[in-house]
């Protein structure tokens, strides 16, 4: 892959086709873990790591196990198993080696298994036919896009205190969804970006 292709792939994954705001992957953790900037940051970093490593392993599993054995139809099952065991492994590794980070991430770590951005990136890598480098770049920058989105949204949400100002029915989740929609609208501005 040439340098230009890599840059356009990276910019596409971070801004133009942001996983949250344009592809709707990973909305559950995005809405769930975005009440504070600190936790959002921790979640984002963990997702970057898992997405990158998941892209690497899923590429290897697909290329050297499923394709030679003509088992491509088992992709979904194989990928989710890779991701689940990967998250489990990361959890055990952090617990032993970097307990402080493990404590900071807390319950968010196992939740990454059911983050559709992770399975989504593995499936999209295969669907779009990216090679090894492309898969790694797409996984990493997709994670960066997720981090950007969740940190932006958490900092908006921290300042949002609509008590008494917002209609009672909209309090809590609905107004947060609409705020996310407005950020998505802002992100649409990037769709004009041509590289």
């Amino acid at each position: 892959m040439s340098f230009g292709q890599i840059v356009s792939l990276a910019l596409g994954a971070i801004l133009i086709e942001n996983f949250i705001f344009s592809q709707f992957l990973g909305i559950c953790p995005f809405m769930g873990v975005s009440k504070k900037v600190d936790t959002a940051l921790g979640m984002g970093v963990a997702v970057i790591f898992v997405m990158t490593v998941a892209s690497i392993f899923c590429y290897i599993v697909n290329e050297f196990l499923l394709v030679p054995l003509n088992l491509e139809f088992m992709q979904t099952v194989a990928y989710i198993l890779v991701i689940a065991s990967l998250v489990q492994f990361v959890e055990m590794f952090l617990q032993k080696m970097i307990p402080s980070l493990y404590q900071a991430l807390g319950i968010y770590l196992p939740l990454i298994t059911t983050n559709c951005a992770v399975l989504g990136v593995a499936l999209l890598n295969t669907q779009n036919g990216y090679n090894f480098i492309g898969s790694v770049i797409y996984g990493f920058t997709g994670g960066v896009g997720f981090l950007l989105a969740i940190v932006l949204f958490a900092s908006v949400r921290e300042r949002m205190d609509f008590t008494g100002e917002c209609p009672k029915a909209f309090e809590g989740f609905p107004i947060a969804l609409i705020a996310a929609g407005l950020i998505a609208l802002a992100f649409m501005g990037f769709s004009g970006l041509k590289i």
């Binding site: 705001f21 344009s22 709707f24 209609p167 009672k168 029915a169 909209f170 309090e171 809590g172 989740f173 609905p174 107004i175 947060a176 969804l177 609409i178 996310a180 929609g181 407005l182 998505a184 609208l185 649409m188």
Partner: peptide, 25 residues
Amino acid sequence: LFIILPFGGFLVLGVLIAAMQHISN
């Protein structure tokens, strides 16, 4: 066109959940 785009998804779902909250309130 906005309603078909991602923004519309967030907006419509937000309004639907708000309607549900209104009814349960």
